[in-house]
Design a protein around this nucleic acid. Structure first.
Length: 286
DNA sequence: CTGCGGTCCTGAAGGC
DNA sequence: TGCCTTCAGGACCGCA
């Protein structure tokens, strides 16, 4: 599912393709996924494509912004003349023909390019806001520290751990504490740090907290480098319709029953933590 | 405050 | 073959 690395990969691809384009029309095929008036954005030009946590923000020239949450299966795929692009270059294959039956919103630009919002499970949403409302809207205003900014420091991270008695994995995934971390990267960062996902956050030593801070940062960075992850049952593709490659580098996520990558001889175990699939090595994560 | 469970939705997987 | 049940999962909501 799209977490920070996937949304960031989409953002980079989208910004490159739609910045400066003018919206000609918006076709809303599934009304519940589009909140606000489509007519409010027609004729507006795309100024920037930003990201906060897992939320994509498209700022427009008329004082409006679109905010988009892809939730589990949302996709934003750009096509021009029926083709997808990486950089300025058209690529021959980029998934299925669009629109597909999962296509619920279509943006048409004046140059003939199109942006397809696809969402198999229909949990995601797109909202039209006034640009000045973006920072305070509920989906963004309550978000915690943003990785890859100066706000993401050990000085900010440590007190978050100290203040919670919840399992550390839930704290990593709490969007009001740290923005953008979901199930995949919480699991992999905890493996990298050698910490049991069930440990109470406030039971981590300063040294463990430091190790986790470094691991979280490096795992997210590596995932962006590989263009995000598209696991077996996941719908993630980038803005060109192309899957990511981080799934080939999963440490523990969805590796239950397979050998620990530390060569300790133990197999990765899957448990449920607060109803979410949780993967770890019982030998290497204490 | 915490910790439940339900909700949205679809397709895959398993049972018989 | 085919029908039925179960399950996954981000964010949010209501309840105890």
């Amino acid at each position: 599912m799209p977490e920070l690395p996937e949304v960031e990969t989409i953002r980079r691809g989208l910004e490159e393709k739609i910045k400066g384009l003018t919206i000609k029309n918006v076709e809303v095929r599934l009304a519940k996924q589009f909140q606000g008036k489509a007519t409010d954005i027609i004729g507006a030009k795309v100024l920037s494509v930003r990201r906060r946590g897992k939320v994509t923000i498209i700022d427009l020239s008329n004082g409006k912004s679109l905010i988009i949450h892809l939730k589990l299966t949302g996709q934003l795929v750009f096509r021009h003349d029926g083709r997808s692009f990486i950089g300025g270059h058209p690529i021959p294959f980029a998934g299925t023909d669009l629109p597909a039956k999962t296509t619920h919103i279509i943006f048409d630009f004046t140059n003939g390019a199109r942006l397809f919002y696809n969402d198999l499970r229909q949990f995601g949403w797109i909202k039209v806001l006034r640009s000045e409302e973006v920072n305070t809207t509920s989906a963004i205003g309550k978000l915690g520290i943003e990785p890859f900014t100066n706000d993401f420091s050990l000085e900010a991270f440590s007190p978050i751990l100290k203040r919670s008695s919840k399992p550390i994995k839930l704290v990593l995934m709490d969007q009001e504490k740290i923005a953008g971390v979901g199930n995949i990267y919480a699991n992999d960062a905890l493996f990298e740090a050698g910490i049991d996902p069930r440990r109470k956050a406030n039971s981590l030593t300063p040294s463990e907290g430091h190790k986790l801070f470094i691991s979280l940062h490096s795992v997210l960075k590596e995932a962006i480098k590989y263009g995000g992850s598209s696991a077996a049952d996941e719908a993630y593709v980038n803005a060109a319709g192309v899957p990511g490659k981080y799934q080939d580098h999963f440490r523990v996520y969805q590796r239950q029953g397979q050998l620990c990558l530390n060569k300790c001889g133990q197999k990765i175990v899957r448990i449920a933590l607060s109803g979410r699939g949780t993967f770890f090595c019982p030998h290497c994560q204490k």
